[in-house]
Design a protein around this nucleic acid. Structure first.
Lengths: 189, 189
DNA sequence: CTCACATACTCAACTTGTTGACTAGGTCGG
DNA sequence: CCGACCTAGTCAACAAGTTGAGTATGTGAG
Protein backbone atom coordinates (compact mmCIF):
# COMPACT_ATOMS: atom_id res chain seq x y z
CA UNK A 1 0.00 0.00 0.00
CA UNK A 2 3.00 2.25 -0.16
CA UNK A 3 3.65 2.42 -3.86
CA UNK A 4 0.42 4.35 -3.72
CA UNK A 5 1.95 6.97 -1.48
CA UNK A 6 5.08 7.18 -3.57
CA UNK A 7 2.86 7.93 -6.57
CA UNK A 8 0.96 10.60 -4.66
CA UNK A 9 4.25 12.21 -3.67
CA UNK A 10 5.55 12.01 -7.22
CA UNK A 11 2.43 13.77 -8.50
CA UNK A 12 3.24 16.78 -6.33
CA UNK A 13 5.53 17.73 -9.20
CA UNK A 14 2.51 18.08 -11.45
CA UNK A 15 0.35 15.89 -13.65
CA UNK A 16 1.88 12.91 -15.36
CA UNK A 17 0.88 9.92 -17.42
CA UNK A 18 1.53 6.37 -16.32
CA UNK A 19 4.29 6.17 -18.85
CA UNK A 20 5.82 9.42 -17.57
CA UNK A 21 5.73 8.13 -14.03
CA UNK A 22 7.31 4.84 -14.97
CA UNK A 23 10.25 6.79 -16.30
CA UNK A 24 10.21 9.73 -13.91
CA UNK A 25 10.34 7.30 -11.03
CA UNK A 26 13.72 6.40 -12.31
CA UNK A 27 14.98 9.93 -11.75
CA UNK A 28 13.28 10.82 -8.50
CA UNK A 29 11.76 8.05 -6.48
CA UNK A 30 13.81 5.20 -7.83
CA UNK A 31 16.41 5.55 -5.11
CA UNK A 32 13.93 4.14 -2.71
CA UNK A 33 10.99 2.72 -4.60
CA UNK A 34 11.36 0.91 -7.86
CA UNK A 35 8.53 -0.70 -9.74
CA UNK A 36 7.58 -1.95 -13.15
CA UNK A 37 5.15 -0.13 -15.44
CA UNK A 38 2.54 -2.82 -14.78
CA UNK A 39 2.53 -2.13 -11.09
CA UNK A 40 2.07 1.56 -11.78
CA UNK A 41 -0.83 1.18 -14.18
CA UNK A 42 -2.62 -1.13 -11.84
CA UNK A 43 -2.09 1.17 -8.91
CA UNK A 44 -3.12 4.24 -10.90
CA UNK A 45 -6.40 2.55 -11.84
CA UNK A 46 -7.11 1.73 -8.24
CA UNK A 47 -6.20 5.19 -7.09
CA UNK A 48 -8.49 6.69 -9.67
CA UNK A 49 -11.41 4.55 -8.59
CA UNK A 50 -10.63 5.52 -5.00
CA UNK A 51 -10.83 9.16 -6.02
CA UNK A 52 -7.27 10.08 -5.09
CA UNK A 53 -6.35 11.13 -8.59
CA UNK A 54 -8.21 12.18 -11.72
CA UNK A 55 -7.31 11.32 -15.26
CA UNK A 56 -7.63 13.67 -18.18
CA UNK A 57 -7.31 12.04 -21.57
CA UNK A 58 -5.00 13.98 -23.82
CA UNK A 59 -5.35 13.36 -27.51
CA UNK A 60 -2.07 13.47 -29.31
CA UNK A 61 -1.57 13.89 -32.98
CA UNK A 62 1.22 11.56 -33.83
CA UNK A 63 1.20 9.35 -30.78
CA UNK A 64 -1.29 7.22 -28.89
CA UNK A 65 -3.56 9.15 -26.54
CA UNK A 66 -2.42 9.28 -23.00
CA UNK A 67 -4.10 9.81 -19.69
CA UNK A 68 -2.67 12.58 -17.54
CA UNK A 69 -3.17 11.98 -13.85
CA UNK A 70 -3.28 14.68 -11.23
CA UNK A 71 -3.94 14.81 -7.52
CA UNK A 72 -7.44 15.47 -6.23
CA UNK A 73 -8.00 17.24 -2.91
CA UNK A 74 -8.80 13.84 -1.45
CA UNK A 75 -5.48 12.57 -2.80
CA UNK A 76 -3.66 15.41 -1.11
CA UNK A 77 -5.44 14.59 2.09
CA UNK A 78 -4.49 10.92 1.81
CA UNK A 79 -0.88 12.00 1.36
CA UNK A 80 -1.06 14.23 4.42
CA UNK A 81 -2.49 11.34 6.40
CA UNK A 82 0.33 9.12 5.23
CA UNK A 83 3.05 11.58 6.14
CA UNK A 84 1.47 12.00 9.56
CA UNK A 85 1.44 8.24 10.22
CA UNK A 86 4.25 6.24 11.76
CA UNK A 87 6.79 4.72 9.44
CA UNK A 88 8.27 1.38 10.30
CA UNK A 89 12.03 1.17 9.85
CA UNK A 90 13.16 -1.13 7.07
CA UNK A 91 16.04 -3.49 6.56
CA UNK A 92 18.26 -3.45 3.51
CA UNK A 93 16.91 -6.55 1.71
CA UNK A 94 19.79 -7.06 -0.64
CA UNK A 95 20.78 -10.37 -2.17
CA UNK A 96 24.39 -9.31 -2.15
CA UNK A 97 24.31 -9.22 1.63
CA UNK A 98 23.00 -12.76 1.72
CA UNK A 99 25.81 -13.76 -0.60
CA UNK A 100 28.40 -12.09 1.62
CA UNK A 101 26.90 -13.80 4.65
CA UNK A 102 27.75 -17.06 2.92
CA UNK A 103 30.95 -15.66 1.40
CA UNK A 104 33.22 -18.11 3.15
CA UNK A 105 31.89 -21.00 1.08
CA UNK A 106 32.49 -19.42 -2.30
CA UNK A 107 34.99 -16.60 -1.99
CA UNK A 108 35.86 -15.95 -5.63
CA UNK A 109 32.27 -15.70 -6.84
CA UNK A 110 31.37 -13.29 -4.08
CA UNK A 111 34.41 -11.15 -4.81
CA UNK A 112 33.28 -10.88 -8.41
CA UNK A 113 29.81 -9.78 -7.29
CA UNK A 114 31.32 -7.21 -4.97
CA UNK A 115 33.43 -5.73 -7.73
CA UNK A 116 30.47 -5.56 -10.05
CA UNK A 117 28.28 -3.92 -7.45
CA UNK A 118 30.95 -1.41 -6.60
CA UNK A 119 31.12 -0.29 -10.20
CA UNK A 120 27.37 -0.11 -10.47
CA UNK A 121 27.17 2.03 -7.35
CA UNK A 122 29.85 4.37 -8.64
CA UNK A 123 27.92 4.85 -11.86
CA UNK A 124 24.79 5.57 -9.86
CA UNK A 125 26.61 8.14 -7.76
CA UNK A 126 27.73 9.92 -10.90
CA UNK A 127 24.13 10.01 -12.12
CA UNK A 128 22.87 11.29 -8.80
CA UNK A 129 25.51 14.02 -8.80
CA UNK A 130 24.42 15.21 -12.20
CA UNK A 131 20.83 15.26 -11.01
CA UNK A 132 21.83 17.21 -7.93
CA UNK A 133 23.61 19.87 -9.93
CA UNK A 134 20.59 20.20 -12.16
CA UNK A 135 18.34 20.67 -9.14
CA UNK A 136 20.63 23.27 -7.63
CA UNK A 137 20.69 25.05 -10.98
CA UNK A 138 23.58 27.32 -10.17
CA UNK A 139 22.63 28.06 -6.58
CA UNK A 140 24.71 26.86 -3.67
CA UNK A 141 23.18 24.13 -1.55
CA UNK A 142 22.56 26.66 1.23
CA UNK A 143 20.69 29.02 -1.07
CA UNK A 144 18.65 26.19 -2.49
CA UNK A 145 17.69 24.67 0.83
CA UNK A 146 16.48 27.94 2.27
CA UNK A 147 14.91 29.34 -0.87
CA UNK A 148 13.32 26.53 -2.87
CA UNK A 149 9.60 25.82 -2.62
CA UNK A 150 10.18 22.10 -2.24
CA UNK A 151 13.18 20.47 -0.64
CA UNK A 152 11.76 16.94 -0.32
CA UNK A 153 13.16 15.66 -3.62
CA UNK A 154 16.58 17.07 -2.81
CA UNK A 155 16.69 15.48 0.62
CA UNK A 156 15.73 12.06 -0.71
CA UNK A 157 18.34 12.42 -3.40
CA UNK A 158 20.92 13.04 -0.69
CA UNK A 159 19.85 9.82 0.98
CA UNK A 160 20.25 7.91 -2.24
CA UNK A 161 23.69 9.40 -2.71
CA UNK A 162 24.96 8.55 0.72
CA UNK A 163 23.51 5.06 0.46
CA UNK A 164 25.47 4.36 -2.69
CA UNK A 165 28.63 5.92 -1.34
CA UNK A 166 28.28 3.66 1.66
CA UNK A 167 27.85 0.71 -0.66
CA UNK A 168 31.07 1.58 -2.44
CA UNK A 169 33.02 1.85 0.81
CA UNK A 170 31.59 -1.40 2.10
CA UNK A 171 32.28 -3.32 -1.11
CA UNK A 172 35.86 -2.07 -1.04
CA UNK A 173 36.25 -3.13 2.57
CA UNK A 174 34.86 -6.61 1.91
CA UNK A 175 37.14 -7.01 -1.07
CA UNK A 176 40.32 -6.17 0.84
CA UNK A 177 39.30 -8.47 3.67
CA UNK A 178 38.56 -11.38 1.35
CA UNK A 179 41.70 -10.64 -0.64
CA UNK A 180 43.91 -10.81 2.41
CA UNK A 181 42.32 -14.01 3.63
CA UNK A 182 42.71 -15.52 0.19
CA UNK A 183 46.41 -14.72 0.30
CA UNK A 184 46.72 -16.31 3.70
CA UNK A 185 44.94 -19.46 2.59
CA UNK A 186 46.91 -19.81 -0.62
CA UNK A 187 50.37 -19.14 0.76
CA UNK A 188 51.15 -22.22 2.84
CA UNK A 189 50.08 -24.77 0.20
CA UNK B 1 12.92 -16.84 -3.65
CA UNK B 2 15.58 -15.16 -1.60
CA UNK B 3 14.37 -15.76 1.91
CA UNK B 4 15.29 -19.29 0.97
CA UNK B 5 18.91 -18.32 0.43
CA UNK B 6 19.01 -16.31 3.60
CA UNK B 7 17.88 -19.41 5.48
CA UNK B 8 20.51 -21.56 3.79
CA UNK B 9 23.16 -19.04 4.78
CA UNK B 10 21.86 -18.86 8.32
CA UNK B 11 22.07 -22.66 8.61
CA UNK B 12 25.81 -22.49 7.93
CA UNK B 13 26.03 -21.69 11.64
CA UNK B 14 24.64 -25.10 12.41
CA UNK B 15 21.28 -26.79 12.78
CA UNK B 16 18.35 -24.78 14.06
CA UNK B 17 14.62 -25.08 14.57
CA UNK B 18 12.15 -22.78 12.88
CA UNK B 19 11.67 -21.04 16.16
CA UNK B 20 15.42 -20.61 16.61
CA UNK B 21 15.72 -19.16 13.15
CA UNK B 22 12.87 -16.76 13.69
CA UNK B 23 14.78 -15.33 16.62
CA UNK B 24 18.31 -15.83 15.37
CA UNK B 25 17.42 -13.93 12.25
CA UNK B 26 16.97 -11.01 14.51
CA UNK B 27 20.61 -11.13 15.53
CA UNK B 28 22.31 -12.01 12.27
CA UNK B 29 20.32 -11.64 9.11
CA UNK B 30 17.80 -9.10 10.35
CA UNK B 31 19.88 -6.18 9.15
CA UNK B 32 18.98 -7.12 5.66
CA UNK B 33 16.23 -9.68 5.68
CA UNK B 34 13.39 -9.61 8.13
CA UNK B 35 10.48 -11.97 8.14
CA UNK B 36 7.76 -13.30 10.35
CA UNK B 37 7.78 -16.81 11.82
CA UNK B 38 5.03 -17.85 9.43
CA UNK B 39 7.13 -17.04 6.42
CA UNK B 40 9.95 -19.09 7.83
CA UNK B 41 7.87 -22.16 8.59
CA UNK B 42 6.34 -22.14 5.15
CA UNK B 43 9.71 -21.74 3.51
CA UNK B 44 11.30 -24.42 5.68
CA UNK B 45 8.59 -26.89 4.65
CA UNK B 46 9.17 -26.15 1.01
CA UNK B 47 12.91 -26.38 1.38
CA UNK B 48 12.57 -29.70 3.08
CA UNK B 49 10.39 -31.10 0.31
CA UNK B 50 12.91 -29.75 -2.19
CA UNK B 51 15.63 -31.68 -0.37
CA UNK B 52 17.73 -28.65 0.57
CA UNK B 53 17.45 -29.29 4.27
CA UNK B 54 16.59 -32.22 6.48
CA UNK B 55 14.62 -32.13 9.68
CA UNK B 56 15.41 -34.20 12.71
CA UNK B 57 12.66 -34.26 15.32
CA UNK B 58 14.03 -33.66 18.78
CA UNK B 59 11.87 -34.81 21.64
CA UNK B 60 12.14 -32.49 24.56
CA UNK B 61 11.22 -33.31 28.10
CA UNK B 62 9.53 -30.23 29.36
CA UNK B 63 8.82 -28.46 26.08
CA UNK B 64 7.06 -29.20 22.83
CA UNK B 65 9.07 -31.28 20.39
CA UNK B 66 10.96 -29.32 17.83
CA UNK B 67 12.33 -30.03 14.42
CA UNK B 68 16.01 -29.26 13.94
CA UNK B 69 16.86 -28.37 10.39
CA UNK B 70 20.26 -28.78 8.84
CA UNK B 71 21.74 -28.34 5.39
CA UNK B 72 21.95 -31.27 3.01
CA UNK B 73 24.71 -31.48 0.40
CA UNK B 74 22.14 -30.39 -2.16
CA UNK B 75 21.32 -27.40 0.05
CA UNK B 76 24.97 -26.43 0.16
CA UNK B 77 25.11 -26.72 -3.57
CA UNK B 78 22.05 -24.52 -3.97
CA UNK B 79 23.72 -21.95 -1.77
CA UNK B 80 26.89 -22.08 -3.83
CA UNK B 81 24.83 -21.62 -6.97
CA UNK B 82 23.13 -18.62 -5.43
CA UNK B 83 26.37 -16.96 -4.35
CA UNK B 84 27.75 -17.52 -7.84
CA UNK B 85 24.74 -15.87 -9.51
CA UNK B 86 24.33 -12.18 -10.24
CA UNK B 87 22.69 -10.06 -7.61
CA UNK B 88 20.49 -7.22 -8.71
CA UNK B 89 21.10 -3.98 -6.82
CA UNK B 90 18.23 -2.90 -4.62
CA UNK B 91 16.69 0.39 -3.66
CA UNK B 92 16.03 1.43 -0.09
CA UNK B 93 12.25 0.95 -0.02
CA UNK B 94 11.57 3.00 3.08
CA UNK B 95 8.28 4.73 3.84
CA UNK B 96 10.15 7.47 5.65
CA UNK B 97 11.79 8.45 2.38
CA UNK B 98 8.39 8.71 0.73
CA UNK B 99 7.27 10.91 3.61
CA UNK B 100 10.32 13.15 3.24
CA UNK B 101 9.71 13.38 -0.50
CA UNK B 102 6.36 14.90 0.42
CA UNK B 103 7.75 16.71 3.46
CA UNK B 104 6.92 20.16 2.19
CA UNK B 105 3.21 19.53 2.58
CA UNK B 106 3.33 18.48 6.21
CA UNK B 107 6.56 19.63 7.79
CA UNK B 108 5.85 19.09 11.48
CA UNK B 109 4.64 15.52 11.11
CA UNK B 110 7.67 14.57 9.06
CA UNK B 111 9.99 16.17 11.57
CA UNK B 112 8.45 14.04 14.28
CA UNK B 113 8.98 10.90 12.19
CA UNK B 114 12.58 11.87 11.56
CA UNK B 115 13.27 12.37 15.25
CA UNK B 116 11.70 9.03 16.05
CA UNK B 117 13.65 7.22 13.37
CA UNK B 118 16.88 8.81 14.48
CA UNK B 119 16.40 7.49 17.98
CA UNK B 120 15.49 4.07 16.72
CA UNK B 121 18.60 3.94 14.55
CA UNK B 122 20.78 5.00 17.45
CA UNK B 123 19.38 2.19 19.56
CA UNK B 124 20.04 -0.25 16.75
CA UNK B 125 23.62 0.95 16.44
CA UNK B 126 24.16 0.31 20.12
CA UNK B 127 22.83 -3.23 19.72
CA UNK B 128 25.01 -3.88 16.70
CA UNK B 129 28.06 -2.63 18.56
CA UNK B 130 27.40 -5.04 21.41
CA UNK B 131 27.03 -7.85 18.89
CA UNK B 132 30.25 -6.84 17.23
CA UNK B 133 32.22 -6.91 20.45
CA UNK B 134 30.81 -10.33 21.22
CA UNK B 135 31.90 -11.61 17.81
CA UNK B 136 35.39 -10.19 18.22
CA UNK B 137 35.55 -11.81 21.63
CA UNK B 138 38.63 -9.95 22.81
CA UNK B 139 40.49 -10.03 19.50
CA UNK B 140 41.17 -6.89 17.52
CA UNK B 141 39.29 -6.55 14.27
CA UNK B 142 42.49 -7.28 12.34
CA UNK B 143 43.13 -10.49 14.23
CA UNK B 144 39.54 -11.58 13.78
CA UNK B 145 39.33 -10.87 10.07
CA UNK B 146 42.48 -12.78 9.29
CA UNK B 147 42.00 -15.62 11.74
CA UNK B 148 38.31 -16.49 12.00
CA UNK B 149 36.85 -19.40 10.03
CA UNK B 150 33.90 -17.31 8.87
CA UNK B 151 33.90 -13.59 8.27
CA UNK B 152 30.60 -13.35 6.39
CA UNK B 153 28.48 -12.58 9.43
CA UNK B 154 30.91 -9.92 10.57
CA UNK B 155 30.97 -8.20 7.19
CA UNK B 156 27.19 -8.08 6.97
CA UNK B 157 27.06 -6.72 10.48
CA UNK B 158 29.38 -3.91 9.39
CA UNK B 159 26.98 -3.11 6.57
CA UNK B 160 24.07 -2.94 8.98
CA UNK B 161 26.08 -0.66 11.24
CA UNK B 162 27.08 1.78 8.57
CA UNK B 163 23.55 1.81 7.16
CA UNK B 164 22.14 2.90 10.49
CA UNK B 165 24.87 5.44 11.09
CA UNK B 166 24.05 6.87 7.71
CA UNK B 167 20.40 6.99 8.68
CA UNK B 168 21.23 8.94 11.80
CA UNK B 169 23.30 11.46 9.89
CA UNK B 170 20.65 11.88 7.24
CA UNK B 171 17.82 12.32 9.75
CA UNK B 172 19.86 14.97 11.53
CA UNK B 173 20.53 16.76 8.28
CA UNK B 174 16.86 16.73 7.26
CA UNK B 175 15.86 18.02 10.67
CA UNK B 176 18.19 20.99 10.58
CA UNK B 177 17.11 21.84 7.04
CA UNK B 178 13.41 21.67 7.90
CA UNK B 179 14.02 23.55 11.13
CA UNK B 180 15.70 26.42 9.37
CA UNK B 181 13.02 26.64 6.71
CA UNK B 182 10.36 26.57 9.40
CA UNK B 183 12.03 29.54 11.08
CA UNK B 184 12.15 31.41 7.80
CA UNK B 185 8.50 30.76 7.06
CA UNK B 186 7.33 31.70 10.55
CA UNK B 187 9.38 34.86 10.93
CA UNK B 188 7.77 37.32 8.49
CA UNK B 189 4.12 36.66 9.48
C1' DC C 1 11.01 -0.59 -47.68
C1' DT C 2 11.64 -2.84 -43.79
C1' DC C 3 13.08 -3.53 -39.18
C1' DA C 4 14.11 -1.91 -34.82
C1' DC C 5 12.77 1.16 -31.38
C1' DA C 6 9.79 4.64 -28.71
C1' DT C 7 5.21 5.81 -26.91
C1' DA C 8 1.38 4.32 -24.22
C1' DC C 9 -0.76 0.99 -22.61
C1' DT C 10 -3.53 -3.89 -21.15
C1' DC C 11 -4.11 -8.78 -19.51
C1' DA C 12 -3.16 -12.87 -17.01
C1' DA C 13 -0.64 -15.69 -13.96
C1' DC C 14 2.45 -16.22 -10.51
C1' DT C 15 5.54 -15.72 -6.39
C1' DT C 16 6.41 -13.26 -2.12
C1' DG C 17 5.37 -11.14 1.93
C1' DT C 18 2.01 -9.84 5.73
C1' DT C 19 -1.70 -10.27 9.20
C1' DG C 20 -4.37 -12.37 12.52
C1' DA C 21 -6.04 -15.96 14.99
C1' DC C 22 -5.41 -20.61 17.02
C1' DT C 23 -3.27 -24.99 19.52
C1' DA C 24 -0.90 -26.88 23.31
C1' DG C 25 2.18 -27.78 26.90
C1' DG C 26 5.30 -25.70 30.52
C1' DT C 27 7.08 -22.05 33.97
C1' DC C 28 6.95 -18.46 37.13
C1' DG C 29 4.90 -14.87 40.24
C1' DG C 30 1.70 -13.55 43.39
C1' DC D 1 -4.35 -21.99 41.58
C1' DC D 2 -4.85 -18.28 38.22
C1' DG D 3 -3.23 -15.53 34.75
C1' DA D 4 0.70 -14.00 32.04
C1' DC D 5 4.33 -15.25 29.34
C1' DC D 6 7.64 -18.57 26.80
C1' DT D 7 8.47 -22.42 23.54
C1' DA D 8 7.18 -24.37 19.13
C1' DG D 9 4.57 -24.40 16.08
C1' DT D 10 -0.15 -24.49 12.38
C1' DC D 11 -3.93 -22.57 9.30
C1' DA D 12 -6.25 -19.41 6.37
C1' DA D 13 -6.76 -15.31 3.82
C1' DC D 14 -5.06 -11.47 1.76
C1' DA D 15 -1.99 -7.72 -0.03
C1' DA D 16 1.93 -6.57 -2.61
C1' DG D 17 5.33 -7.27 -5.99
C1' DT D 18 7.16 -9.74 -10.29
C1' DT D 19 7.20 -11.75 -14.92
C1' DG D 20 6.01 -12.33 -19.51
C1' DA D 21 3.47 -11.63 -23.35
C1' DG D 22 0.51 -8.84 -26.33
C1' DT D 23 -1.64 -4.42 -28.80
C1' DA D 24 -1.48 -0.37 -31.58
C1' DT D 25 0.68 3.58 -33.73
C1' DG D 26 4.51 6.40 -35.32
C1' DT D 27 9.66 7.65 -36.13
C1' DG D 28 14.25 7.10 -37.89
C1' DA D 29 18.30 4.35 -39.80
C1' DG D 30 20.12 1.57 -43.14
Amino acid sequence: MSLRNAVLAALLDGAASGYDLAKAFDASVANFWMCTPQQLYRELDRMESDGLITARTVEQERRPNKRLFSLTPSGLEALAQFTAAEHKPTAIRDELLVAVLAADTNVEAVKASLRERKQWAEAKIARYERLRLRMLDGRTEEEFLVGAERVGPYLTLLRGLSFERDNVRWCARCLTVLERRGARLDAPT
